[in-house]
Amino acid sequence: MNFLLEHKWVILAGLEVLAWLSTFFVFYARYAMKSSFWFKAAAILLAITGVFPQITMGIISFAVSGKLDIYTFVIVLLLLYGFTFGKKQVEKLDVWMQRIFLNKGNDVDKQKK
């Protein structure tokens, strides 16, 4: 437990990086691979690397300190962002990724002609 609390900021940064990589893998699996299996696997990976461990770390930090410290506050802000503005950003990212992967095939077809 002490290790988690001593390195909580590094762990949070690592989890954020993994969550964003998982997010891009979700889109890659959906649009480039067109694989239902890998899309579901990527979505599970996203939950495992993003939401659940961050919430758990925030709860642990709050339980040990007994107060809303800056770390727990940052976790709460990340969650609020994710459930509000973050949804819109992911929707925009989804449209952008669709265009990239769907147009990529069209570019290849145009080059063959």
Results as ranks from 00 to 15, higher is better:
1 M>L: 08
2 N>D: 15
2 N>M: 06
3 F>L: 04
3 F>R: 01
5 L>W: 04
6 E>R: 05
7 H>V: 02
7 H>T: 08
8 K>H: 04
8 K>S: 01
8 K>F: 01
9 W>K: 09
10 V>L: 10
11 I>Y: 09
12 L>R: 03
13 A>T: 14
13 A>F: 11
13 A>V: 14
14 G>F: 06
14 G>I: 07
14 G>C: 10
15 L>E: 05
15 L>T: 13
15 L>S: 10
16 E>N: 07
18 L>V: 05
18 L>D: 10
21 L>M: 15
22 S>Y: 00
23 T>L: 15
23 T>D: 00
23 T>A: 01
24 F>P: 08
25 F>E: 06
26 V>H: 07
29 A>Q: 01
29 A>Y: 05
30 R>G: 01
31 Y>I: 04
32 A>K: 14
32 A>G: 01
33 M>C: 01
34 K>W: 04
35 S>T: 03
37 F>Q: 09
38 W>Q: 08
38 W>L: 10
39 F>Q: 13
39 F>G: 05
39 F>E: 14
40 K>F: 05
42 A>H: 08
43 A>F: 07
43 A>L: 14
44 I>V: 15
45 L>G: 14
46 L>A: 11
46 L>W: 06
46 L>R: 13
47 A>Q: 10
48 I>G: 04
49 T>L: 03
50 G>C: 08
51 V>E: 03
52 F>Q: 04
55 I>L: 15
56 T>A: 13
56 T>L: 14
56 T>S: 07
56 T>K: 03
57 M>G: 02
57 M>D: 00
57 M>A: 02
58 G>L: 10
58 G>F: 07
58 G>P: 06
59 I>F: 14
59 I>W: 14
60 I>E: 05
60 I>F: 11
61 S>N: 14
62 F>N: 04
63 A>E: 06
63 A>P: 00
64 V>Q: 12
67 K>V: 13
67 K>Q: 13
68 L>K: 02
69 D>A: 09
69 D>C: 06
69 D>W: 03
70 I>V: 15
70 I>K: 04
71 Y>D: 08
71 Y>W: 08
74 V>A: 12
75 I>V: 15
75 I>C: 07
76 V>L: 15
76 V>D: 06
79 L>H: 04
81 Y>L: 00
81 Y>E: 04
81 Y>S: 02
82 G>A: 08
82 G>S: 10
83 F>V: 15
84 T>Y: 04
84 T>R: 02
84 T>N: 06
84 T>G: 10
84 T>H: 02
87 K>Y: 12
88 K>V: 15
88 K>T: 15
89 Q>S: 11
89 Q>C: 06
89 Q>N: 12
90 V>L: 12
92 K>R: 06
92 K>M: 08
93 L>D: 06
93 L>A: 07
94 D>E: 14
94 D>Q: 05
94 D>H: 05
94 D>G: 03
95 V>T: 13
95 V>G: 07
95 V>Y: 15
96 W>E: 04
96 W>F: 15
97 M>T: 14
97 M>Y: 02
98 Q>F: 09
98 Q>R: 10
98 Q>M: 06
100 I>Y: 13
100 I>R: 13
100 I>D: 01
101 F>K: 03
102 L>T: 05
102 L>K: 00
102 L>R: 00
102 L>S: 01
103 N>Y: 08
104 K>W: 07
105 G>F: 00
106 N>F: 03
106 N>V: 11
107 D>G: 07
107 D>C: 07
108 V>F: 11
109 D>F: 06
112 K>P: 00
112 K>D: 00
113 K>Y: 09
